[in-house]
Design a protein around this nucleic acid. Sequence first.
DNA 1: GAGGGCTGTTGAAGCGCTTCGACAGCCCCT
DNA 2: AGGGGCTGTCGAAGCGCTTCAACAGCCCTC
Lengths: 338, 338
Amino acid sequence: MVTLAEVARHAGVSASTVSYVLSGKRSISAPTRERVEHSIKELGYHPNAGARALASSRSNILALMVPLRTDMYVPVMMEIAIAVATTARSHGYDVLLLTGEEGPAAVRRVTGSGLADAMIVMDVELEDERLPLLHAARQPTVLIGLPADTVGLTCVDLDFTATGALCAEHLADLGHREIAVVGEAPAVYERHTGFAERTLEGLRRRAAELGVRLLHRPCEGSYESMDGTLSRIFDERPGTTGFVVQNEAAIDPLLSLLRRQGRAVPEDVSVVAICPEQVATQASVRLTSVAIPAQEMGRRAVELAVAKLEGEAPEEQVTLLAPELTVRASSGPAPGAS
Amino acid sequence: MVTLAEVARHAGVSASTVSYVLSGKRSISAPTRERVEHSIKELGYHPNAGARALASSRSNILALMVPLRTDMYVPVMMEIAIAVATTARSHGYDVLLLTGEEGPAAVRRVTGSGLADAMIVMDVELEDERLPLLHAARQPTVLIGLPADTVGLTCVDLDFTATGALCAEHLADLGHREIAVVGEAPAVYERHTGFAERTLEGLRRRAAELGVRLLHRPCEGSYESMDGTLSRIFDERPGTTGFVVQNEAAIDPLLSLLRRQGRAVPEDVSVVAICPEQVATQASVRLTSVAIPAQEMGRRAVELAVAKLEGEAPEEQVTLLAPELTVRASSGPAPGAS
DNA sequence: GAGGGCTGTTGAAGCGCTTCGACAGCCCCT
DNA sequence: AGGGGCTGTCGAAGCGCTTCAACAGCCCTC
């Protein structure tokens, strides 16, 4: 284990000089710097993380809380997590992975121990029980998702209200008068995850403005439950010609079932999905969709966290990413529309 | 920020006593222990992670390297990662998330800085460039996956050779004489990921033993590429009645395409999948499958890492989990078989 | 030519914890 | 009654790094 002191001795300078070469917090003459850098390389020196953290009260670690449950949007979560890790690295931070399992206790542990410099919290519920703790924490926090009350919080999310509105609008423009929304699993609504409710609100409001009828049904991601949900939708609203799908696991089942029922997409029914690009382009029909910008969300979250750590960001800041709808092969004019 | 010293003062004992109460490394009388514990609670004390790591040269952190690419088995990765995080916590460790992006550099950084006490590496290639570094590292390492040479390494993986054999056997038992294997994406084979090659080897060997013809085709997870692959399979081997699918993203497209072609599952063709249970049970046909025990793999990896840290595990140890094939609705007797 | 302001470097004081060796007091044995 | 072995507690020495105050030497300026 090579230490700073050994590097200093090897380079014929003091320990503090080596430290300053490393951190760049003081100017060091070129010859000295080179000598030190050479010694570092020659000895294979790596600063000890614990000692650094202790002396500087900075761990250079960002904590990321991911939901424990794997009942929803797994690929999205993974993509965000990877974007967070990658972006964090590019700013010199490592990422600590916390599962939601411990809940508020994890927040207490991490903020109390100084394990991480900042926290990024995913899968925020409207009245999330971690919020009070996060407010009280010394460390800056960034939420991916929007709680009910955002006072004093930094949040990043797709603008799901606008997303819902955009989907409603697209289908209405194509002449569809009866739209069915295949929502997330019931559990998602029960735990009051903001994005599901906001999407629905956006859909409802815009649909009402445009005089379109809307029917919302939560749905699990399985083929079976999609089958049941679909039957019930057509029983209740036989005139349904437009679908908005939010549960990405339900997309394949839906397309498959529609085909089996002899309903052609997009000739008989149009489908708009809210899902990552990859899912939209890999489905059996290339899907008209609003992309979930997972990477962008992860990246922004890290950048906000880093900015807050450097004191360059305001306490309260809600970043809503504007949704973009890409028209592909799954949506078209409503049958019988002029 | 409450420190150990403050707790000690509050409890009227010395700092070392508090430390020993916390670690349990020396016996402390009940009254003293209670007094200290009370003070800890009252002051809301949390030990400082950096100071701990410095003094004890233990960070209580496990590093987990996940692959950067999201081109394969994302849900499996996520499940493993979550199992790792959960199990680690139950042993008092936190998990540092590293992406494969940095490659060997990440290994160097983590082992050099003492950031983590041990490493768990996923997505190991047959001749992985990180292996030499891991061998040289002070920290114990556990691989999830098998490289070509396992000398001196601790590895956990599903026994993919046996998995392949099991699939071949199941279909052969049902009377299928021509089997097609829908493999992983070509890129997976190009980078020589062990599990794909081992599965194939198991399939081939057992198929040969049982006198069954085998055709292997790599395949991307998209509907389109599955379409192409399927046509080519039936062009080349019109008598194909059995399928083994390894790329879980190809499962839905395959079932969907077979249905569209008027081939009934399992009456006309049988399908066996290698995938997580959830995928098998949620598909449009409940799939006969060999489960990928993601949770089990994550859990075992952590337990091995912890055992090595406590000096209770041998240096070299390859744990191959026995595959289990569950018969569901997608496989049946070959048409025309007696 | 003296004073003031830079620049580059240093020594030393911690950061908060673990852990080793020491030791006080007690019980038990002979 | 005295010695040996426990048990429970303490003091102090670091762990390897950051950072502050101090200062030596230099160039400029008036």
